[in-house]
């Protein structure tokens, strides 16, 4: 195990280095500059700016400077958000994305597994159709539509009805913001929707598969109770394929919440992925790539370790 972790860490370092290098090289081909946004910048001022950020130095010099800073843990200063370091932006925004992601992930896993399990047990019954509909919507409808619809119907309409009903100015689900528990509910559910659908589908298939295995039939013929068969024997095996899915799913939830964050104005990290490329914020793009690759590598390692506990046949 220890040996595995060390090996994994070494590989992850190489991965991150490769990410830095490739991103750095690609950024050289990015047209435009981070300083021109809505208006052309005065040429003298542009020159002064380039000198300030040393953009006029040859790329290999900038590359070595950047790597040297990176070793010290310095990701540089954002070129767009003046007077803020990339590290401070990540430090501030990532916990919010993580918070939202964990909430969504928990909802997706619990509800998804439950729905999948129930629909496998009550195949072709109402609950099965219901699950199928939900998962179909979750997989097929993109996040920005789900988010906008939830925002309109739950945050605006439903909160409005409750407001009228109780006769106060209080709105149960605020439309935007990230200030308290009330603010987190609808965005988390919206973000969970896609993953939830996927988990439910997967769980259903895998459970149905497992239930038709011979050892289940033999357990049944031995006269075991249905609940015992499902919870003790079938579940353990049925859940395996779902678990291998959880790692990548978790990463995509916490790092892919851009759309939901944008709709509900949540100050997470998602927006920076898009805007930093759009505005040509070189240091931010690099910093985020490094951070993201670090998170992905860590989560994958963790999932692999988790797998050994669930499936003893896997050895590290």
């Amino acid at each position: 195990m220890v040996c595995f972790i060390i090996k994994r860490l070494a590989f992850s370092l190489i991965t991150i280095w490769a990410v830095v290098t490739i991103t750095f090289v690609l950024l050289q081909f990015l047209p435009g500059d981070p300083f021109t946004n809505d208006k052309i910048v005065h040429p003298q001022i542009l020159e002064n700016l380039k000198e300030k950020y040393r953009l006029d130095a040859p790329w290999h010099e900038r590359y070595t400077t950047y790597l040297k800073g990176l070793i010290k843990g310095d990701l540089g200063i954002s070129m767009v958000y003046r007077n803020r370091s990339v590290t401070s932006i990540i430090k501030r925004t990532f916990p919010i994305s993580l918070n939202l992601g964990i909430r969504a992930f928990i909802i997706a896993v619990f509800v998804g597994l439950l729905l999948g399990l129930l629909s496998a047990l009550y195949k072709n019954k109402t609950i099965d159709h219901f699950t199928l509909t939900i998962s179909m919507i979750g997989v097929a409808v993109p996040g920005f539509i789900i988010g906008t619809l939830f925002q309109y119907f739950i945050c605006y309409k439903l909160s409005g009805i409750i407001q009228e009903f109780t006769g106060t100015t209080f709105r149960l689900f605020p439309i935007t913001g990230w200030e308290g528990f009330r603010h987190t509910i609808v965005p988390s559910v919206s973000l969970a929707f896609g993953a939830l659908g996927m988990i439910a589908r997967m769980m259903r298939e895998s459970m149905i598969n497992t239930l038709s295995q011979r050892y289940i039939v033999s357990a049944k013929s031995k006269g075991l109770k249905q609940s015992e068969i499902v919870l003790k024997h079938a579940l353990k095996n049925a859940i395996l394929p779902v678990i291998s899915l959880l790692g990548p799913l978790f990463t995509s939830i916490i790092l892919g919440s851009f759309v939901i964050e944008n709709i509900f104005s949540i100050p997470g990290m998602g927006q920076h992925f898009v805007t930093s490329i759009k505005t040509g914020d070189y240091t931010m793009v690099l910093g985020l790539s490094i951070f993201t690759s670090f998170v992905v590598v860590m989560i994958n390692t963790f999932t692999d370790i988790l797998y050994t506990f669930v499936d003893p046949r896997v050895r590290l």
Partner: peptide, 9 residues
């Protein structure tokens, strides 16, 4: 911080 003032941030 990193040679940039936090004034206004």
């Amino acid at each position: 911080e990193n040679g940039v003032t936090t004034y206004g941030a």
